[in-house]
Design a protein around this nucleic acid. Sequence first.
DNA 1: CGCTGTCTTGAACGTCTTCAACCATAGTGG
DNA 2: CCACTATGGTTGAAGACGTTCAAGACAGCG
Lengths: 231, 231
Amino acid sequence: MIDPELIMKVSRFAGINDEARQLILQKSLVRQYGKGESIFLEGDESAYFYLVLTGEVTVYKILESGREMILGIIQPGEAFGEVAMVDGEEFPANSMARIESSILSLGREDYLQLLKRHPDVALAIIRDLSMRVRQLRTRVEVLGEGGVRSRIAQLLLTFARDLGQETQEGTLVRMPLNRSEVAGMVGARTETVIRIMSQWNKDGAVRTVKDGFLVADMNQLHQAIANEKGE
Amino acid sequence: MIDPELIMKVSRFAGINDEARQLILQKSLVRQYGKGESIFLEGDESAYFYLVLTGEVTVYKILESGREMILGIIQPGEAFGEVAMVDGEEFPANSMARIESSILSLGREDYLQLLKRHPDVALAIIRDLSMRVRQLRTRVEVLGEGGVRSRIAQLLLTFARDLGQETQEGTLVRMPLNRSEVAGMVGARTETVIRIMSQWNKDGAVRTVKDGFLVADMNQLHQAIANEKGE
DNA sequence: CGCTGTCTTGAACGTCTTCAACCATAGTGG
DNA sequence: CCACTATGGTTGAAGACGTTCAAGACAGCG
């Protein structure tokens, strides 16, 4: 059921030697998760390391106030739950498949063994952690912006920068985000997000399309941030 | 001018061998910074790794909206600017001494050499990065809480948990935080912070004392978060 | 003593949330 | 094929909340 090609395509395992490759194929588990299916919950024992092969995973947390905060959306090739596993702590957040996904998991022991065998071990972890630090930092920056309008603008610009592809219509981000998810990421209510985004839609700044959204006019978003009161 | 004792006390360098110790003493630079003095600015070339020996450093960023966001307050023994240096990128934020501080810096080359000589290298970095990930995550959680009241409560509780010491009056956090700083950490205005905190002061929940603040009644803070509208 | 920086308070205004309802669309099962 | 249901998007009105601007209190320091 495991597609060896798929696994080896993951940048993290690129250039890995044959022995390590065998270890992965033998010891890892690849499982399909349906949309909305839970992968682990906050407080669970973290005995596995997870890697998204295909699909997307939402890592989220229920805050003390009851709000649901999305900490991150994990893309194919990216790992999650790794920090907790290395530290040997419980998972600090929940995770679920955002869409139909296939996810590889490797037990702690096997993971550590893999690291030992492969020389670029530490580097892979360090690179991964650095990336996470950077992501979290931009998240803090998004949340730090004053109004909800600024926060959404900042969020969309970040997505456009990281995942966008240029088209003659503007920057296209191939990731359908519903308004609730946006709300969960910027710490706001769905209705508020809707009001702001439909405004932008009318103004031709951002348009929701088939398989994602299109930032047609970045300037308008920057403006929205700059004067803290959209339009 | 460098106090060898001081350097060796830093947990990061504990158990280091003599050779490495010599390297640090010879190659590192320790400099005093006055309150408010800048250490590096966003966009600066990151050629050094910094470590707080005594004092405290504020790492902050000027957001696109013009707001000043405090990303972290670095305590003695903690490093900063490290990620950027390892990645070879420009500093993504500013830093300044929050109080009179002595700060050690080590050039990129020497730092890498130190890491090579000392076996626990990668581990030190990984531990450091993990810690930073955890800190940023709690920061995101703080900012994600709905109202300003919840965010401040969450922030103070975090400080109490991490740095607090129990007294018969409550949990004491030995760190003077002025209201502007709190505002910069929760993404709010100083006046708002003042209104909320003086309310809490009257209610006996949190009191500002000589060298920090005292959380007298944690429950009130949890309450404030729970029902999103303080008391 | 006057200065500076922090803390405080008030009032007006704009923003966001809340709650409640309604529309559109895509499946689903009869 | 259609009613039925679930999901996501949308809108309105009222009120809570936070910001803004302006002004004053206060303490520590040269």
